[in-house]
């Protein structure tokens, strides 16, 4: 329980060193803009995957709408920095807060649903957010929001990734985090032990959305340009795939999964016509041969058998 011990110190040093070395390489041009673009994508994917892991991996709430919170963050930061000319930190904070508020609003009604039904409802919400975006002229509608200043630097990216990973890891180790994990494991037992399951589900959902909002801000302020279609249902699936591929309820897994899957899709860009076909085959092979992910822990609830083949006793 000590704050400063050997392990912490080593981790701290590694974090600082990685930052300094990469910063130096970018400065001196050893890492060109193409590589940096991919580093940005990896960083954003890490934030998205770790935050979704809190909701789906740890708390066991099957969400297919994570990209919607990212889009809310992206647009918020886009508006704050491009239209209102505010600094980036305001953009990030605004993005995170608005995404979190959206998380509360969406979470309270839908988190009463379970399993596949929750997945469908969150998918529906994600699509609704997208359609509202497509039809709102203020933010450019279907053509998207342009001329967003490029504020996402290595420092901002790295800082946001580290903060996300650190805070979520800390949260998981607190009694609130334990309550969330207990819900993912057995909701009825968690309730019987005094865990207000609705509250903690919404809390996990809100926190996850908060960090997805940050990822959105980093995205918007790197790519100059955002449009609602970039944050559709397929983006939510991509994030979910990272979480599952990395390993449910494993933060290290999500980080590793984000890096590996980003690299895979980078290599697939060499075969643009068959890229998605090969990606589909890779997904399939992972699900058949390594469904528990790279760092798979035990059998999590969402990872349990689908009740034999049985439609009616699925929730047992």
């Amino acid at each position: 329980m000590k704050l400063i011990n050997k392990k912490n110190m080593l981790g701290f040093l590694a974090v600082i060193l990685t930052y300094a070395i990469a910063g130096f390489l970018i400065d001196k041009g050893f890492i060109d803009s193409y590589i940096f673009l991919n580093i940005v994508l990896i960083g954003i994917n890490i934030i998205l995957a770790v935050s979704l892991n809190l909701i789906t991996g740890f708390t066991g709430q099957f969400s297919l709408g994570h990209a919607a919170f990212m889009s809310i963050g992206a647009y918020t930061s886009g508006i704050l920095t491009a239209k209102l000319g505010l600094p980036f930190w305001v953009g990030i904070l605004g993005a995170a807060l608005l995404a979190a508020v959206a998380g509360i609003i969406i979470g309270i009604p839908t988190l009463r649903l379970k399993g596949d039904y929750l997945a469908i409802a969150t998918l529906g919400f994600g699509e609704i957010v997208k359609i509202i975006g497509l039809n709102t002229d203020y933010i450019g509608g279907a053509t998207g929001l342009n001329d967003i200043p490029r504020y996402t630097t290595w420092t901002w990216l790295y800082f946001c990734v580290v903060v996300t990973v650190l805070l979520i890891s800390n949260f998981i180790k607190s009694y609130k985090g334990r309550a969330c994990i207990s819900i993912g494991e057995d909701e009825i037992a968690a309730e019987a032990m005094g865990v207000n399951t609705t509250y903690y589900k919404v809390l996990a959902f809100t926190l996850g959305s908060f960090f997805a909002g940050i990822a959105g801000a980093l995205y918007a302020n790197y790519f100059y340009f955002i449009k609602p279609d970039s944050f559709g249902f397929m983006k939510s699936i991509d994030i979910l795939v990272i979480v599952v591929f990395g390993g449910m309820a494993s933060i290290k897994g999500s980080i590793l999964g984000a890096v590996l899957l980003s690299l895979i899709s980078l290599f697939l860009q060499g075969i643009p016509e068959l890229r998605m076909v090969v990606y589909a085959v890779i997904l399939f092979l992972i699900m058949v041969y390594r469904p528990q992910g790279i760092i798979g822990k035990g059998e999590f609830k969402l990872f349990k058998k689908r009740g034999g083949l049985n439609a009616n006793n699925q929730s047992k």
């Binding site: 009694y175 994990i181 207990s182 494991e185 019987a192 865990v195 035990g298």
Partner: peptide, 24 residues
């Protein structure tokens, strides 16, 4: 507080964490 007929422990959590949930 109660226990369950069909044992409802948090299976993937450690024994300690299970008891700590009780302290919630």
């Amino acid at each position: 507080a109660r226990t369950f007929q069909n044992i409802r422990l948090f299976k993937n959590m450690s024994v300690l964490d299970n008891v700590l949930i009780g302290c919630h």
